[in-house]
């Protein structure tokens, strides 16, 4: 069950070329939220909006498609989307909240729904949770070092960053691409990521990521009744182009392989943590 439970897996991309233009891969998150907004399935979504510095996202509550478009593209650093989950239901006045998050953020969301001690009136207002695949994340200073020192690109000049095929790539406005092997980035990873046992956002309604499908497309898992409903309606309305996941390369085998790698590596970390000191271990949140 390294991919979690899901009803269907699809290869898909947004049908709207405007959305696709500046999206990371298939534009799934932006397109799905845009559809859900237009249909009234959600009345706003917590997404990673632009921050003060380049590629340093800040969580925003997007209530229009224009605001969603501002938030397109992956920034490989932490955006504390959960910090806005309550405010979205308060001064923003939302009743049906969408949220996008990494697997850990979706875990936080589900815990907040089942054990909502400090989350009054949040649990039943979550209308659509979209998860994104995540191997690990980088603190902003780590990302800055990778981009500016290792890739020799000024953060301001970067237009897109990407991880794939064993490389971390930075694309500039002038079309240059700078790449480093992924292994150089490991030391900059956030420590808290190394105990994470979820690669493909197992607890989301819909989760998506680039792994498993060709460039410009995304792998999509539809997991819950809510996810099935929204996805079905979006497909029906022609918001996505799809292909059978069995027909694309590299397909779910690669997703499974990477998920296994992440989980077994981090299981090992958890084991090491248990005997980290001398007759003393580090805390395990899953026990």
């Amino acid at each position: 069950m390294v991919l979690g439970s899901y009803k269907t897996a699809i290869c898909a991309r947004a049908a709207d070329p405007g959305i696709l233009a500046k999206s990371q891969d298939g534009g799934i998150v932006t397109q799905l939220f845009a559809f859900a907004l237009e249909e009234g399935i959600i009345d706003g979504a917590v997404v990673a909006g632009p921050g003060d510095e380049p590629f340093k996202p800040e969580p925003i509550v997007a209530t229009t498609v224009a605001e969603l478009l501002e938030a397109r593209g992956t920034r490989y650093t932490i955006c504390p989307n959960m910090s806005m989950i309550k405010e979205a239901t308060r001064t923003y006045g939302l009743d049906k909240v969408g949220i996008v998050g990494t697997p850990c953020q979706i875990q936080a969301l589900r815990k907040a729904q089942l054990y909502p001690m400090g989350m009054r009136s949040v649990p039943d207002k979550i209308a659509l949770a979209v998860g994104i695949f995540c191997m690990e994340n980088f603190p902003y200073q780590g990302l800055e070092t990778m981009v500016e020192d290792l890739c020799n690109v000024k953060m301001e000049s970067a237009v897109k960053m990407d991880i794939g095929k064993g490389k971390f790539s930075v694309y500039t406005e002038r079309g240059a691409v700078s790449q480093i092997p992924l292994k150089l980035t490991h030391k900059f990873e956030q420590g808290g990521c190394h105990v994470c046992l979820d690669y493909v956002a197992n607890l989301a309604d819909v989760s998506t990521g680039s792994v498993g499908t060709p460039d410009g497309w995304s792998t999509v898992f539809v997991r819950t009744k809510v996810g099935e409903d929204v996805w079905g309606r979006a497909i029906g309305a022609g918001y996505f182009e799809t292909k059978d996941i069995a027909d694309v390369k590299p397909g779910l085998d690669l997703v499974t392989k990477l998920a296994n790698e992440k989980i077994s590596k981090n299981q090992k970390t958890l084991e090491e943590r248990a005997t980290f000191g001398v007759n003393k271990g580090l805390r395990n949140p899953y026990l």
Binding site: P80, C104, G192, L282
Partner: peptide
Amino acid sequence: VDVINQGLCMGCGTCVAACPVRAIDMVYG
């Protein structure tokens, strides 16, 4: 003490939303 120091925090921001006196904000993740 029990999350950041233990190497477990991944910066999701849940604590910010949960705090009833707005005593928490996110600084450098």
